[in-house]
Design a protein around this nucleic acid. Sequence first.
DNA 1: AAATTATGACTGACCAGTCGGTCATACAAG
DNA 2: CTTGTATGACCGACTGGTCAGTCATAATTT
Lengths: 195, 195
Amino acid sequence: MSGNKEQQIIEAAIRVFARKGLEKGRIADIAVDAGIGKGTVYEYFRSKEEIFTAIESSVMQEMMNQLAGLVGSDLSPRNKLEALLEQGMDAMIGMGDAILIMTELWAQAARGLWHDSGDTFLEEVYEEFRVIVKEILRAGVEAGQFREMSYEGVATLLLAFMDGLAWQYMLIRDHEKFENVKKEAIRSFMRGINK
Amino acid sequence: MSGNKEQQIIEAAIRVFARKGLEKGRIADIAVDAGIGKGTVYEYFRSKEEIFTAIESSVMQEMMNQLAGLVGSDLSPRNKLEALLEQGMDAMIGMGDAILIMTELWAQAARGLWHDSGDTFLEEVYEEFRVIVKEILRAGVEAGQFREMSYEGVATLLLAFMDGLAWQYMLIRDHEKFENVKKEAIRSFMRGINK
DNA sequence: AAATTATGACTGACCAGTCGGTCATACAAG
DNA sequence: CTTGTATGACCGACTGGTCAGTCATAATTT
């Protein structure tokens, strides 16, 4: 039961923060959820802030890994993009209730926009994602599969698309109903850019 | 300077919550921003919670009013939908920094999903919106302007679309750059459902 | 001068982070 | 083998600071 305690704490923290929010989620709650003492949490993390940062990294890392697998594949641009959408949404569904942590990530990033002049971690990830998508789009246009477009515009649109769907999925929380949305979403998006 | 004090407080609260977040934004901050004493805030609102609820109503009310104007118009379904997208995004841009409050609304709603079995306020608004959009879509299909589709699926997609774009706009915060995205977004979405 | 409205000092609840202490385990000496 | 000793993971009571909400008083209006 006691494997990597750091991971154990992160997973507990995701559950707690998803349920209560970043501010209301107490360190004591995380400790209880992880089945350890409060003091022990501080053996592994310096502060609450640091736990949240670790969650951010963990969630984003996973997304990026999945993305990397796709990019390396030898699918056609159209199939690559479809797979991207499909897998992205399946990943959301796979997160279960932990997906509610996404709103905390977003809210946190939004607050950051006021303070730091510079990049949030989340912004960096988005930029990375956008670069990859633009590349697929360009390849698709060159292959004659996609219409002419503003790559930057459509890449941003795709991000909006996926975040928005994540949000809708949180609200719906009904796999079956969401399957319907997912199907239409992919169909509409692809029709929107296909030649 | 002292018109409707309730509205004055709400506006101050939007600024404060957008900048600091719902938890970190102190009542004292709101009072200072509104140019009144802390105690006075409690003359108009019973609690912090109540202020937030008022913000929710205020923001959503405005959205709904705008929507109602469109529905009543005698535009064709296609033009109605395009106007909906266009106006929706212009409304976002018009919110300025106050748009950052949206993430707080979302995060709050997400937390609510754990506790209440029933509907969040936000969920109700979404449902209302979906009903209106479905009606436009149905009219469009009947008029031969739109392809056959799952109304529920596409309506949800449209919501995802707009929320996602709101989020991207928050991150970009560059009107010019966003104009580009906006144009592609509308083009792609309409292509996705046009016959 | 009574009523209404505004104020900010005050209070009590709450919680992140600290720290002195416990205890299971490992290793060494007898 | 078993007694003694060292280690550091683990713990939760405690502290210091923060902040929502209260209330006695002050200012303003009627």
